[in-house]
Design a protein around this nucleic acid. Structure first.
Length: 305
RNA sequence: GCCGAGGUAGCUCAGUGGUAGAGCGCGGCCCUGAAAAGGCCGGCGUGGGGGGUCCGAUUCCCUCCCUCGGCA
């Protein structure tokens, strides 16, 4: 029998943190965070980090361990996650991934393509060219070396066009070819995916409440402190940093900052849901007003299927 | 009460004698080394009510209602 790995995902503010802890207790699991922002240290309020007290009771991994200025990415996450899976399994426990970053989940399950490191110089040069000659210029170059990728990537999606060219520059192979050479864990493990799914209106209310709560818990102060650091490309993109920053430098009002944060979080939640709809193995868990314990019980009951 | 401006998408507003758009919102989607990022698609509408002119009105005319500003 294959060892089991459980993924508990869902849009932001859907209640993952609490439910994950309850599930972990019931199935003797350790939690591996699957969240691109919670890896960073110093963003407790901003990322609604699970409180230290709960992390003490149930071990949480890949969380709160990277300085704000250090670059972090899918590849590092994948490597570390795979290692954690092994370690937790060796202890006879179940790895329970909990978080909202769809790409990170997908890369753990489906693998990452090989040989695609970064080359900052090449990347920078490509972005400069894109600015100078317009987005279509790079896209037409991509068309020549990798028509398959070019057909898939929209010319305006500069980030992906640049990445495809960068990979070709580094490896001499088209990215579309490399991307077919991925090895995931799906065949070695019994992968179970659960996605928390509050009703949309309810989700948006929860998001609003959460943002309000962040402010009352001292978000402004936290962001002020964060902004004293040099931030990695990822960390600086956490929702709230720009909004609160603009408030701090007087460009927008307090109320505007708050509303923008709510709106941006809603848009983010929508994008998350699109990700989660993709994997057809996903079991959708409708959540409402019930307690985390009850939701966890329902999830655990599905595990014996 | 009088004068002026205006009532068009959920919101802010543009436009036209041949039944209407834009931004935001909202919905859907794509995604593999920045992913809380980046990108794509979708108009979702009794054009304030009623009447008139016209082949045809959201557009012109009349009237009523409502909102805002000024004067009383």
């Amino acid at each position: 029998m294959k060892p089991r790995i459980v993924f508990l995902v869902g849009p932001t503010a859907s209640g993952k943190t609490d439910i994950a802890v309850q599930v972990a207790k019931k199935i003797n699991a350790e939690i591996i965070s699957c969240d691109s922002m919670q890896v960073y240290q110093g963003m407790d309020i901003l990322t609604s980090m699970p409180p230290r007290a709960t992390r003490k009771k149930i071990p949480h991994h890949l969380i709160d361990f990277i300085p704000l200025g250090r670059e972090y990415n899918v590849s590092r996450f994948r490597r570390e996650a795979v290692k954690k899976i092994r370690e937790i399994s060796e202890k006879g426990k179940t790895p329970l991934f909990a978080g909202g970053t769809g790409l990170y989940m997908s890369v753990v399950i489906n693998g990452i393509f090989p040989g695609g490191g970064e080359n900052p110089e090449v990347r920078q040069r490509l972005y400069r060219q894109s600015e100078k000659h317009g987005g279509d210029y790079l896209h037409s170059r991509l068309k020549k070396i990798d028509p398959e990728a070019a057909a898939k990537i929209h010319p305006h999606d500069t980030r992906r066009v640049v990445r495809a060219l960068e990979v070709y520059h580094i490896t001499g192979k088209p990215i579309s070819l490399l991307q077919k050479q991925r090895k995931g864990i799906a065949d070695k493990y019994d992968v179970r995916i659960f996605c928390l799914n509050p009703e949309r209106a309810e989700l948006y209310e929860r998001i609003d409440r959460r943002v309000d709560r962040m402010f009352s818990r001292g978000l402004v102060k936290e962001v002020k402190k964060i902004l004293k650091n040099r931030l990695s490309k990822t960390a600086e993109k956490a929702i709230g940093i720009r909004e609160v920053g603009e408030y701090l430098n007087g460009h927008i009002s307090f109320a505007e900052a708050k509303n923008l944060m709510k709106r941006n979080t809603r848009l983010y939640a929508k994008r998350q849901l699109t990700w989660f709809r993709k994997d057809k193995r996903t079991r959708w868990i409708e959540v409402g007003e019930e307690s985390p314990q009850l939701a966890a019980e329902r999830i655990v009951s599905f595990l014996s299927d």
